[in-house]
């Protein structure tokens, strides 16, 4: 494994009984790389994400993050190492305000989450990070709004903001543009493009056109297995990918 690899997946298998949702997948993501995982519905993309974040530990294989084997580490343990994610199906705290969502996101990797009699407000440094993340995600004016009253697009933006504010080393985006209108998709794409290139990013996306303009490398999954890997151009021209994925999609 090279020093430049931020995330290495070695022969990952995730089986649910007899069904292998992810079957022997190996990917290496360089530090600072933007990597997309594509594939039709049911290809095993989200399951692979769950294996990386620890929600569903792999049945076989290894997950190595920054040289450390984290295959058996807990979800929160991985999060504290700097792995941040968004969810395909919006997963926020709907009865709390945007600010409160951000407070939770900021403190997740830091101190003060067990403070029982302190004030709820963030300290100056944390507050600055939170407002920076909100402004990147274009939610700066929405702090006091209850999340369940945000538009769907805004909720997706908040997903991004919460993942970003933790100052992750690895950002996992699970279909960040799912269900958005074309106009909203453009906003999300712009947010992603504006992120620092020091940040390693793995992105699941259904929408080829959106994703191929954002990333440097692409892995295509089908039925849990690796179909192809390469640059966006290589993938675009790959016959197998066109057959199982593009052919069907168009």
């Amino acid at each position: 494994m090279s020093d430049a690899s931020a995330l290495v997946l070695e022969n990952i298998v995730v089986a649910f009984g007899a069904l292998k949702a992810v079957d022997n997948v190996s990917i290496a993501v360089r530090s600072g790389e933007r990597h997309a995982i594509i594939g039709p519905n049911g290809a095993g993309k989200t399951t692979l994400f769950n294996a990386i974040t620890g929600v569903t530990p792999p049945t076989a294989g290894r997950v190595v993050f920054q040289g450390q084997d984290i295959t058996r580490r807990s979800v929160q343990g991985r999060a504290r190492m700097g792995i941040s994610r968004t969810f395909q199906i919006t997963n926020l705290f709907p009865s709390l305000t945007v600010d409160e969502n951000m407070q939770l996101a900021v403190r997740g990797n830091g101190d003060g989450k067990f403070s029982m009699f302190g004030a709820a407000e963030l300290n100056a440094g944390q507050a600055e990070r939170a407002s920076a993340a909100l402004s990147i995600s274009r939610l700066d004016t929405r702090g006091a709004v209850i999340v369940s009253e945000l538009s769907y697009g805004e909720q997706r933006q908040l997903e991004m903001a919460m993942a970003l504010v933790a100052q992750p080393k690895l950002l996992l985006l699970d279909e960040p543009a799912a269900g958005l209108s074309p106009a909203e998709r453009i906003i999300v794409a712009e947010i992603i493009r504006s992120l620092s290139h020091d940040l390693t990013m793995v992105l699941i996306e259904h929408d080829m056109e959106l994703v191929l303009n954002l990333v440097e490398r692409v892995t295509c999954l089908n039925n849990g297995q690796m179909l192809a890997e390469g640059t966006p151009n290589e993938i675009r021209s790959n016959q197998l990918v066109q057959d199982v994925y593009l052919g069907k999609a168009r």
Binding site: V75, Q76, A79, S84, R85, N91, P94, M162
Partner: peptide, 10 residues
């Protein structure tokens, strides 16, 4: 509101 989100936040 969401235990899974809390875990993924650390």
């Amino acid at each position: 509101d969401s235990e899974s989100r809390m875990r993924s936040l650390g």
